[in-house]
Structures are given as C-alpha cells and as structure tokens.
Design a binder for these strands. Structure first.
Lengths: 241, 241
DNA sequence: TCCGGCATTTGATTTTGATCAAGTGAAAGC
DNA sequence: GCTTTCACTTGATCAAAATCAAATGCCGGA
C-alpha cells in the first residue's frame, strides 16, 4: 500500500519531514513529496511543557497535530469538576477530530512533548483530494475506537487492583514501541492523572501501587520509574487471561 | 455532498434498496445505482430474535451489516464472565469493524431486529474504489468514538443514579430520531443489559429506577415503558448541566 | 543547610454499591 | 385454573473504594 512512496527521491521531501516518525507510522506517510511540501509550508513544530493545553473542551478546532514526542492525554470534565481521561496518545499518533467544528474534549501534554501543528483547513483540503490520507485517518479512528472500548471494559467491570495493573500493562506496551524490553519504563502520568484515567481517587491508586509492590508484581523507584519482573504475571493481575 | 445521487433515476436502484433508510442516514447513500445493484446481488436481509448473535468475540469477520430496524448491543466479556456493553447501535447504523480479521467484540440483537448483511470482501472492494464510501465509514467510526468517550466519562465518574439517568436520556434521544416527542418510549434493554451497559448490578439498576420513579423524574409502566415528564430535569439528574 | 511547597503515602472512618436472600408479579405451559 | 418460570423488586448485610485527615519524602530556592 505504501510501496508507491518508496521510490520518491528523498531530496524532494521537506527537510524537517525526512527524519520524521509520522511519515512512517503516522498520517503523513499517505502523502506525496509535493503534498508534504505543501503541508509543511503551513505547519510548525512546538515544544509543549507538561500540562500545556493543545485544545480545550468546547473550543473551535483550528489545528490538527502529529505527536512527535511525548504523551498527550484526552480528558472530559463535568460541570462540577469531575474529570475523566478518555484517551492517551503516543508519538507518532495523529491528534484531532476531523469533520467537527468544536472539540468535545481537552487535549493536553501529559509529559514534556513535541507536536507538529497544521491548520485544519489545509489538511481538510488535502483529505478531500487524497483517499489514501482519509484511509489513514480512518484507520487511526478505528484504532482509537478499539482502545476506547477496551478501556470501557476496564472502567465498568474491573476492580481497583485490576485497573491499576491494566494501566501499567498499557503503558508498558505503548510507551516505547521500539524497545525490545518493555519491562522497565517511566510513568508518563502523575498519580492524579492515573486516578482520572482509571475512574478512581489518587488514594486508591496509591494503595494499589503499594499492594502490587508488596506482592512483587512491580518494583518502583522515585515514584515514577517502574520495573516489571514478569509481564505475564502483571497481565493476569490486570484480568487479561 | 449527496447531491449527485438525487438525479439518478429511481428505477435504476434495486427494489429492496429504494425504501431503505440506510440509503439516507447510512453508508449505502455513498453508492451509485450500479454499485448498489452489485452490492445488492450479494446481500441478504435477516430478521433477528432478541439475543441472536450477529458476530462473536474472537470470530472471523465475514460479514458487515446495516441495521434496518431494532437495537444491537456490542459487548465484551472477560474470561471469568464479567461483561460490559461497549456500544449500542440503532437503525440505520453500519455494523462492522473494517480492516480487521477477527472481531474484538460480540454483537447481538438487544431487541427483535432486522439487518441487511453483505460479504466483507464485496464491501472491502467497493471501499477501495469509492472514496465517498470510505468517508461515510470514517464518519461513522468517529461518531462511535465520540459516543464511546462520552460513555467513558459516565462509567468512570458518575454515580449509580447519574448512570441510570444518563442511560434513560441516551435512549430517549436515540430510540426514535424522527419522533418529535422523545418523552415516551420503550426500553430496548432488560435490567441485566442496562446493568452491563452501566457497569452496575441489576439490583442497583432496579433501585435507581425505583428512586427516579419516586422522585417523579420518570414514570414506568410494564417495566419497559418509560415516560419522562421533564427532559431537562432528567438531564440534570444525568449530570449533564 | 534549612524551609516551603508539592506529590505521594498511610491511616481511620464513612459511604456507595455489591452480594446474598427473599419476595412479587406477569406471562407461558400443563 | 393452577403451577412454573423468569424478570424484576425489595430488604439485610458486607466489602470495596471514597472521603477526611495526617504523615512522609522529595525537590528547588533562600
């Protein structure tokens, strides 16, 4: 499917795009050299501090992004402040909800991150002309839908311990897709964020971490660095037999 | 967008498709008369009893469907039998997960229903040739993703009472999109299904129904028929201010 | 080095919803 | 007409997670 792209001479591709991950796993892989050049004219890279907002719930969508580095959390808040993380996105995911005026969610950097922004109307125009690009976005949407539904099972039916184990398993398998060894990693989320992802309080999250540590399912250093001696055992704790 | 379809003479369209809802709200609206004819050659309508399975978790996907009538529930089960409904689909929704071999969910009729089945490979071929069709499927996937994320907030952060009120509000607004009066309807799900949708037990669901009834938020006849005297009040009970 | 501000952990108590256990009521079968 | 069955409701008790309330530990700055 992507074979057609291989024979394009590298020098036709914009400099910043050449080493860019989003051209491989991401949506830009669907674009020709000219299209990349056009998109690149309007796009800009940004470094995001932890907590920096990419877009807010209820705001007009003016930009889409590719995540170049870091982890972005998607959250929904209720009027009284209760909050739920409804998705985590990792590089090189596409970030944005096509075909809608107003964002139904807030997207903010969970870790120090880097994104490549492009104006909504430029990409929308490109999508109309490039079925392959819409196909990529379609696949991305379906992937997110599968993930959302997996997480609904976790939110609705798992115990606190299973939820925390599920979270650790999710991070272990997503944080660094290249790494052969997923058994040691830094958590991209604070305890408060983890609680908002799991539909728990931070006290419950903390207690479950302690319990998993005492049962030697995980080791923790500096609150954020986790080592998993036996990934299958963690998976069983997560209820995924 | 669909303007091009208007000028096609009706007699070119297969008989069974002419009165079909899926041509309007659904995916078939993206097809030309010839394409409809081709798809129709391989498609078949089926009546489904309540509980009839359209596809099972882990099974190979061989068919896609359009829901013509009724409500279909999408569920996930854990090894120990715990179950979560991860989506409800109403006519004339498209039913199926393109680009994947094996279904990650079970789909079964929540009410007596009718579906129009077509072989996966026929539609897949059509999708490749018809960007407008992929666009429709893309939009459907994004709609389901929005709904899934809304529901994640409900599952993760709402109280039992808010969950039940949210469910009633969802049904009121989805069961009969044409109806001007959404304030009186039949529940398409049993108490057990509602519990599986809300991540609660059937006893808790029942108690919350009783409570909402006693507080005059809803009236119930014959266990299944619900009347909502004040939809805004129900919405407030659902936590959607 | 000490202090202040956070994030996290730990402890005590309360609350919510689950579990266990009977009821009730309506439709289906004998 | 009576029983059986099944879905649903109601009640009593229990357990898991929330809440309230202090610690603890860590990092950065004075």
């Amino acid at each position: 499917m992507e074979v057609r792209r291989q024979d394009i001479h590298n020098s036709d591709i914009p400099l910043v795009c050449r080493a860019c991950e989003a051209r491989h796993g991401g949506v830009c892989g669907a674009l020709t050299a000219e299209q990349l050049t056009e998109l690149n004219k309007h796009s800009s890279r940004h470094r995001l501090e932890t907590g920096a907002e990419v877009i807010g719930q209820g705001e007009a969508v003016v930009n889409y992004s590719n995540i170049m580095r870091g982890v972005v959390k998607l959250t929904k808040v209720m009027a009284d402040g209760r909050q739920q993380i409804v998705g985590l996105q990792f590089a090189p995911d596409f970030l944005g909800r096509p075909f809608i005026e107003e964002s139904a969610i807030t997207a903010e950097a969970a870790t120090e991150s880097e994104v490549c922004n492009f104006p909504r109307n430029v990409l929308d125009r490109l999508v109309k002309r490039t079925p392959e690009l819409e196909h990529k976005l379609h696949r991305q949407a379906l992937k997110e839908l599968d993930e959302a539904r997996d997480w609904m099972l976790t939110l609705g039916r798992k115990t606190a311990q299973e939820k925390v184990a599920s979270f650790l398993y999710l991070i272990a398998t997503h944080i660094d897709p290249e790494s052969v060894d997923a058994s040691s990693f830094d958590l991209p989320l604070s305890r408060a964020d983890i609680a908002d992802f799991l539909g728990l309080t931070i006290e419950t999250v903390s207690r479950q971490f302690t319990k998993l540590r005492k049962e030697n399912v995980i080791r923790i250093e500096n609150n954020r660095h986790v080592t998993v001696p036996d990934m299958d055992r963690l998976m069983r704790y997560a209820g995924n037999d």
